[in-house]
Write a protein that binds this DNA or RNA. Structure first.
Lengths: 364, 364
DNA sequence: ACGCACTCCGTAAACGTTTACGAATGTTGG
DNA sequence: CCAACATTCGTAAACGTTTACGGAGTGCGT
């Protein structure tokens, strides 16, 4: 079956009517519509997307841009596939399809996005890993492509974004550690210009200030977002002259490398050093002692992302009137055994152990 | 900048010439071409993909279909993002773009693919997780869409595929264990109809036969492809009346759950039970004792996949003449400590420990 | 001066849809 | 029986490109 023309010939109907029948337009007899749908089903006819989108100026496709650098590959730990499910669940209701656009690691993300946008292969975009100032946001704004940024950015002052509550996480981690008697608390932060680093540190500083603990720059450890980053962070930690009693991690995978390096040096996490991790990544679930960290539902995040995006698309915003311009996505603290001791006495407090292999699938 | 028409008006040239200039066609003056390219650059003009592909019947886009079910999300461990890099490196040479098509978990993969194919949004496809008989293959064949299956299938007798060397892995694992004195060797296999299960078991059976060890169906443990699957596999293993001295795993993540369950029961991997894992997944790199398993380069696999696909596309096959119809992708054995004991004496043989945190990034 | 080849460019058709418009037919109310 | 309207459908234009074709201009040899 080549196209709508052949289908129309076979039915001995004009192509206009066939098109109307297939697209649920009103001006068509019930019986005719039935015949058309039956024939389309029989021949497996589906409208050619190029022709369709050329005519109506929209593609019914949403793009999710991800960076496929090896660093991301190693470390994202299926973050994007997780949100994808949530996204699709809301897009499906509007017959929108989601495609993932992996930016090649050797290409400039800005140019890649520009190319994709100019080709008009998508109606709207979701971009991730936003930088502090991110030209992609200006690009999309100027091109009038509806979009949502996963990760806030200074460039996005006027556009939609949704971001994890990094400040809250740092804040609560510090509060929790201080409440346990810690005073010298190290924190890790990204070495690159991604915006989340600034926010993370802000939460950390503010929480310290609230308790009149002076901010000590030497306790900020710049790391790469990987297991190796965690390993090196532990290294730097061990080299500090006055060793901190606690450390707060960023990036889900850091904990693994950090644990390993600590163990190698005979420093036991949860006894000699309190550790609070970031996201509850699948790869980190096995750690012993179990890691205190934060958890979120990737699926729900995807749903919210999808809703927010549609709220910014003229054709769909009637369906999502309330959905605002940006969201700080909360994370829930999961108590493990990695921060249960008192730094002054060394005594271990009892708290329920985190269950790993319960029957319900643990959300990632 | 709306389209080529406005660009042509601005330059006071006909749109035909503009198009020829942009696409590197011969019949155009050097000076004119320079002006056109400069103007296009200035206004950020890129040809609308719908119009272009409508005219020339191709989209310059390759689709990689992946299943985004939660099971995959949890367990694939960035497998696809890994091969993506390799794919793009070869596609980039031909100005082809790769998009990932995540099939919603609640939609039938066959219908999803049919929809995508009929919409003609891609020129060619890579499909993964092929089943023993997979209707998607017939669909693509009939639609005359060039494709490569990642994973062999009975349905793909006549088409291109590339698959991991499951048979070889099972084979070498058994050989290695037998050489160490094991006679009672359990193996895990998928509970679903994916084709790799059959092949994996074939390799296992043949290796046993070669050494006159009878095949014992009770030693085949059906598992889900997850950590939980590994946990349950260990459970079943422990319940066997005459406990095997070794077990061969499938799926990269199984080892984690298996280790955990064994430890809980005081059965030490590498001392009380030899374990040989499958792929050298990032999440399994930390295991203690380190896991003997197999390794491959996802990047190289992606490259080979890309080459094979292009070899099946009329427009590109001149560039890849030699690339055949299918490949069995080899995996390299990485010796760990999980299978270094003699089941009769319990003595541990010395072999070099696997390095995890070397400087070069370990390929996943 | 003529024919010829060559270079460069404009014209218009085609790709597969959707949709505004109007025509044809049937229906209703008076 | 006619006007007015409703229902259903066909016609043709439009979307933004690419490309086959042919025409205009130039240079060259005879």
């Amino acid at each position: 079956m080549k196209g709508i023309r052949q289908l129309a010939e076979h039915l001995d109907i004009s192509i206009g009517t066939v098109s109307r029948a297939l697209n649920g337009k009103p001006d068509v007899n019930d019986e005719t519509r039935r015949r058309v749908l039956a024939a389309a089903e029989e021949f497996g006819y589906v409208a050619n997307q190029s022709g369709r989108s050329l005519r109506q100026g929209e593609t019914k496709v949403i793009g999710l841009m991800i960076e496929s650098s090896m660093e991301t590959v190693e470390n994202a730990d299926n973050f994007f596939l997780g949100v994808t499910s949530g996204l699709q669940s809301v897009f499906a209701r509007h017959k929108l399809d989601l495609i993932m656009l992996p930016c090649p690691s050797d290409e400039d993300p800005h140019e890649y996005l520009q190319r994709m946008v100019a080709r008009r292969i998508v109606d709207a975009m979701i971009i991730s890993e936003t930088h502090r100032i991110d030209r992609r946001i200006d690009l999309l704004s100027r091109a009038k492509i509806p979009f949502v940024a996963l990760g806030r950015s200074l460039s996005a002052s006027n556009s939609a974004w949704i971001d994890l509550d990094f400040e809250g996480v740092a804040n609560r981690a510090v509060e929790r550690l201080i409440a346990r008697g810690h005073r010298r608390i190290a924190i890790t932060a990204p070495s690159s210009e991604v915006n989340l680093g600034y926010i993370f540190l802000d939460g950390y500083r503010r929480a310290l200030e609230r308790h009149d603990i002076p901010f000590d720059p030497s306790l900020v450890i710049r790391v790469k977002s990987s297991e190796q980053g965690g390993y090196q962070a532990a290294n730097e930690l061990l080299l500090l002259e006055e060793r901190p009693t606690a450390v707060i991690l960023i990036y889900e995978l850091m904990a693994i490398g950090l644990y390993r390096r600590l163990m190698e040096s005979g420093v036991m996490p949860g006894r000699d050093l309190a550790v609070i991790g970031f996201r509850d990544a699948p790869r980190a679930r096995f750690l012993q002692p179990s890691l205190s960290c934060f958890r979120m539902s990737l699926y729900d995040l995807g749903v919210e992302l999808g809703r927010m995006l549609l709220a910014n698309m003229p054709a769909y915003q009637d369906f999502y009137p309330g959905d605002g311009r940006n969201i700080i996505w909360p994370l829930e603290l999961i108590v493990g055994e990695s921060d249960l001791f008192d730094p002054r006495t060394g005594e271990k407090e009892f708290e329920p152990e985190r269950l790993i292999f319960d029957n319900k699938t643990v959300e990632s």
